[in-house]
């Protein structure tokens, strides 16, 4: 199948004797929005860190965009088209919006090694179109990020993914630290991505958000995947039962 954007098989990560992630089989299709849920320490973030090559996996295989991949580091994964919004956002406070969007992959007019001349105009224009795509309105993108609120910063971090036409966006609890209005804005961006048929993996503890926005829910428990649920076939209490360990799907019975 060519419309499978990402597929993992037997993905495993051990930290010394701790099995943080065991034998995870996962796939996501083009345009699909999948939630990853689970208790703290269930292996959600570990799973993301293996896909994005922030860490190197102990075992297992990853296919991305049809090809078997072994990324050396996060930059390589990003160049391939996996864009991640980390919990910590990874923004430089003193730089403005375009600078942050293009941090580490600046557009240049003239290549002179480290002293390559920046192409501010092109970066500004791509930023504006990226913001438009996500529906984020920032009239003054020339201001430093430092003076923006949590929600605005989150939007900038998310807009980064849109600007680069990523094939897969991963968001690690994007609304955990946000207020009601700001959460609404981030959710709007997620809806926009859905309309544009972009694939998304969302790590979230917010059941309402997941039920509203996602197509499918994958539940992690103690380093293993214990359920793979279509939204239509499940409901909040059901998901909670899987998260807490009250239930385990038949397919994953061995994992319990």
């Amino acid at each position: 199948m060519t419309d499978i954007v990402l597929k993992t098989e037997g993905l495993t990560k051990h930290y010394g004797g701790v099995h943080a992630l065991d034998d995870a089989d996962f796939e996501i299709r083009q345009g699909e929005h999948v939630a990853i849920m689970g208790d703290n320490g269930a292996g959600k973030s570990t799973f993301v860190r293996q896909i994005t090559a922030v860490e190197q996996r102990t075992q297992g295989k990853i296919w991305f965009d049809g090809d078997y991949v072994e990324f050396d580091g996060p930059l390589e994964a990003r160049e391939a088209g996996i864009e991640t919004v980390f919990q910590t956002l990874a923004l430089a406070d003193d730089l403005n919006v375009p600078d942050n969007l293009f941090l580490g992959r600046e557009l240049v007019k003239l290549k002179l090694g480290p002293f390559s001349i920046l192409d501010y105009k092109a970066m500004r224009e791509s930023t504006l179109s990226g913001l438009e795509k996500t529906g984020v309105k920032i009239p003054n993108i020339g201001n430093a990020i430092r003076n923006m609120s949590g929600g605005q910063r989150q939007c900038v971090a998310i807009a980064r993914t849109a600007t680069f036409h990523s094939k897969l966006t991963i968001m690690d609890e994007p609304t955990a630290a946000l207020g009601v209005q700001e959460t609404a804005q981030v959710e709007n961006i997620i809806r926009t991505l859905k309309e544009q048929n972009e694939s998304l993996i969302l790590i979230s503890h917010n059941m309402r958000q997941v039920m509203d926005l996602m197509d499918r829910i994958v539940v992690f428990r103690r380093g293993r995947i214990v359920a793979n649920l279509r939204k239509e076939d499940t409901h909040g209490e059901d998901v909670v039962a899987y998260i807490t360990g009250a239930k385990t799907q038949d397919d994953y019975a061995g994992a319990a």
Partner: peptide, 18 residues
């Protein structure tokens, strides 16, 4: 105006982000 400058500011601003 150069990548050098941008990275210099970025590192001072947030080394982790950089």
């Amino acid at each position: 105006f150069t990548v050098y400058g941008k990275h210099t500011y970025a590192i001072g601003s947030s080394e982790d982000a950089a």
